Amino acid sequence: MTSTSSLALVRLLQLASPALPVGAYTYSQGLEWAVESGRIRDAAGAGQWIGDLLRHGIGRLEAPLLACLIEHWHSHALTEITRLNADFLASRESAELRAETTQMGFSLKRLLTDLNDAELAPILAGLSNLGEVAFPTAWSGIAATWGIAPLDAITAYLWSWAENQVMAALKAVPLGQAAGQRLLAELGRDIPQLAQTALALPEVEWSNLTPAFAICCARHETQYSRLFRS
Rank of each mutant, 00 (worst) to 15 (best):
T4G: 02
T4L: 13
S5H: 07
L7S: 09
L7Y: 10
A8S: 09
L9Q: 10
V10F: 07
R11L: 04
R11K: 05
Q14T: 14
P18D: 03
G23N: 12
A24T: 01
A24V: 10
Y25V: 07
T26F: 11
Y27R: 14
S28D: 08
Q29P: 04
Q29W: 13
G30R: 09
L31C: 05
E32W: 11
E32S: 10
A34L: 15
E36V: 13
E36Q: 13
D42F: 14
A43P: 03
A43R: 15
Q48M: 08
W49G: 08
G51T: 07
L54K: 11
G59Y: 12
R60I: 02
P64M: 07
I70P: 02
E71H: 08
H74Q: 07
H74N: 06
S75W: 04
A77H: 08
T79S: 15
E80K: 13
R83P: 02
L84Q: 11
A86M: 11
A86H: 15
F88P: 15
E96A: 06
E96L: 08
A99C: 12
A99E: 14
E100W: 14
T101N: 00
T102G: 01
Q103M: 11
Q103S: 09
M104F: 03
M104R: 07
M104N: 02
K109M: 01
R110V: 15
L111G: 01
L111H: 03
L112Q: 04
D114N: 06
A118C: 08
L120D: 02
L120F: 03
A121G: 04
G126V: 09
L127C: 08
S128H: 06
N129L: 10
L130S: 03
E132D: 14
A134G: 08
A134W: 03
A134D: 14
A134S: 13
P136H: 06
A138E: 05
G141D: 07
G141E: 10
A143M: 02
G147F: 03
A149D: 14
P150Q: 15
P150H: 08
P150E: 15
D152A: 04
W159N: 08
A162P: 06
A162G: 02
E163M: 06
V166Y: 12
A172M: 03
G180T: 05
G180H: 14
Q181Y: 06
R182M: 14
R182Y: 05
L184M: 05
L184W: 15
A185G: 13
R189E: 11
D190H: 14
I191S: 05
P192S: 14
A195T: 04
L199K: 12
A200P: 05
A200F: 03
L201Q: 14
L201C: 10
P202N: 04
E203I: 13
V204C: 01
E205V: 00
W206I: 03
S207L: 00
N208W: 01
T210L: 07
T210K: 01
T210E: 04
T210N: 12
P211Q: 02
A212W: 09
F213E: 13
I215E: 02
A218H: 07
T222I: 07
T222C: 00
T222Y: 01
Q223E: 02
R226S: 10
L227S: 13
F228W: 00
